[in-house]
Structures are given as structure tokens and as C-alpha cells.
Amino acid sequence: MHRSSRRTTGRAAVGHVVAHATGAALLVNAVPHTVHALSGRPFPTPFADPPGEGDSTPAANVLWGGINAVAGASLLLGVGRFRCGRDLDTAVTSAAALLAAYGISRHFSGVRARRDAAVAPAPVTSVP
């Protein structure tokens, strides 16, 4: 007998909500890696040195973006029954996607700032 993904109250099971939120975060993370890869530009991945800070090749970003996309879609669409609507599952999933986007943007802004600081010329000081 097929087990329903919803309780009799119509609410998603907690495990399904967590899976959907994680799936949404992974799908968000797939975007920058895939975009940089398709643009032919290097971008940090966990495979870089140091992980998440150093640049990886576009090929590595295709792989990492694809892994994130497949894992995210599998969690969002393959666990329970996700339906976008006015419910807690949709709210939590949407919030997870937005939080992931914010966290990812903060992380890579920091990576870029550290790189810019490392290559910035030393300030010119006047000698009295």
C-alpha cells in the first residue's frame, strides 16, 4: 500500500518539509556554479584549494552545479509531495531558498573582498 506524504490534516510531515527546504537550498547553490561554468569563468567549489575559497575550473563547476541540481531536485520533488501553495511546507521551503541565497552571496562577497585586499597596492604614505 502506498503511504501518503500528507497526514490526515493535510500538513506535510516534518521530514518532508526539511527535505524540501534542503532541496531548495541546493537548487539555489547550483545557480552560481552553473552560470560561471557556462560563462567559461572559474569559481570556487569544495574541490578548490582552499575549499570554497580558491577557484575551480569551469568543468569542476559544471560537475558541482549538476550535483547540487540533481540532489536538490531529488529532495524537492522525490520526497513526499511538494506542492506550492499557502502552507507551511511552501513557506519553509521558500525561506530556505532565500536564506541560502543570502548566505551564498555573503560567503562569495567575503571571498572576493579577501582577494581584492590581497592584491591591492600598498597605500602611498608621504615621508616627512
Rank of each mutant, 00 (worst) to 15 (best):
L63I: 11
V79N: 03
L77R: 10
H20E: 04
P46A: 13
L98W: 09
V124T: 15
G10R: 08
V70S: 01
A113V: 11
A120L: 02
Y102I: 14
H33P: 02
T45H: 02
S39G: 14
A69F: 00
L77M: 12
V92F: 05
P121S: 15
M1H: 11
L63E: 03
S56H: 01
D87L: 07
F47V: 14
A37N: 06
V31R: 08
S126C: 11
F82I: 11
G65R: 01
I67H: 06
R115Q: 08
A19G: 01
L88M: 06
R83D: 08
G10T: 13
T93V: 06
A37R: 01
A96R: 05
T90E: 04
G52A: 11
S39N: 14
A97R: 08
S94N: 03
R86C: 08
W64Y: 08
A48H: 00
R83A: 11
G54N: 06
L38A: 13
S4Q: 10
D116S: 15
V79Y: 05
A100I: 04
A91N: 04
S74D: 04
R114A: 15
V62E: 08
E53H: 10
A95Y: 03
L76V: 02
A101Y: 00
R115I: 05
R3H: 15
G65K: 04
D49R: 15
A95W: 06
S105N: 13
S126L: 14
L38N: 05
C84N: 13
Y102D: 06
S74Q: 01
A25E: 05
N61H: 00
G80S: 03
A91I: 08
P32Q: 11
V17K: 00
D89R: 09
E53Q: 10
L38D: 03
N68V: 10
A117P: 01
D89I: 09
A113M: 01
G54W: 02
L75Q: 07
L38Q: 05
D89Q: 14
T22C: 10
T90M: 10
H33T: 12
A73G: 15
L88Y: 14
T34A: 15
